[in-house]
Design a protein around this nucleic acid. Structure first.
Length: 143
DNA sequence: CTTCTTACA
DNA sequence: TGTAAGAA
């Protein structure tokens, strides 16, 4: 399975806080592994909650456990799987920050949200805008 | 039924 | 890593 497919699969999830059993089921990883990965510092759980001091994992940790699982399946060692997963998580965070902090680039064109990519010359009508819908991303000038 | 820790195969 | 035990 491709990383992009996993990301897409993950973002269809609605819930954003999970118990270890839920992470285990969703990411297809044993609870034993999850506890071990946490002990190694590959995963971090939030403040323990409830009577049994049960771990609570964030959505990000679900993403990471799912990625580690993918790389383990690909034959990487746990240590390497963690490194590769960490890089992807960091990239995702960077992109998320970029997107959420780039409001100054967001405009409305023809009633649709769009981001100005720039223009090939000084002509305002030549500015290229990026749009996104269910079919994906596409670019065009103002109509 | 779930999770926790510890210990052993 | 799996599994079992006893406790919460």
């Amino acid at each position: 399975m491709l990383v992009d497919d996993i990301i897409r699969e993950i973002y269809n999830t609605q819930k954003f806080q999970f118990k270890i059993g839920e992470i285990s089921e969703m990411a297809d990883v044993s609870t034993r592994q999850l506890r071990y990965w946490e002990k190694q510092g590959y995963l971090k759980s939030n403040e323990r909650t409830g009577e049994q001091n049960a771990r609570v994992f964030s959505f990000r940790m679900y993403v990471k456990s799912r990625l580690i699982k993918k790389f383990l399946d690909d034959g990487f060692t746990l240590s390497k799987a963690n490194e590769k997963s960490t890089i992807i998580i960091e990239e995702m965070e960077w992109i998320h920050k970029f997107a959420t902090q780039s409001h100054f680039n967001l405009t409305e064109v023809d009633g649709q949200k769009a981001v100005c990519i720039g223009s090939l010359n000084d002509d305002e009508s030549q500015k290229i805008y990026g749009f996104i819908d269910d079919d994906g991303v596409h670019y065009r000038t103002k109509s």
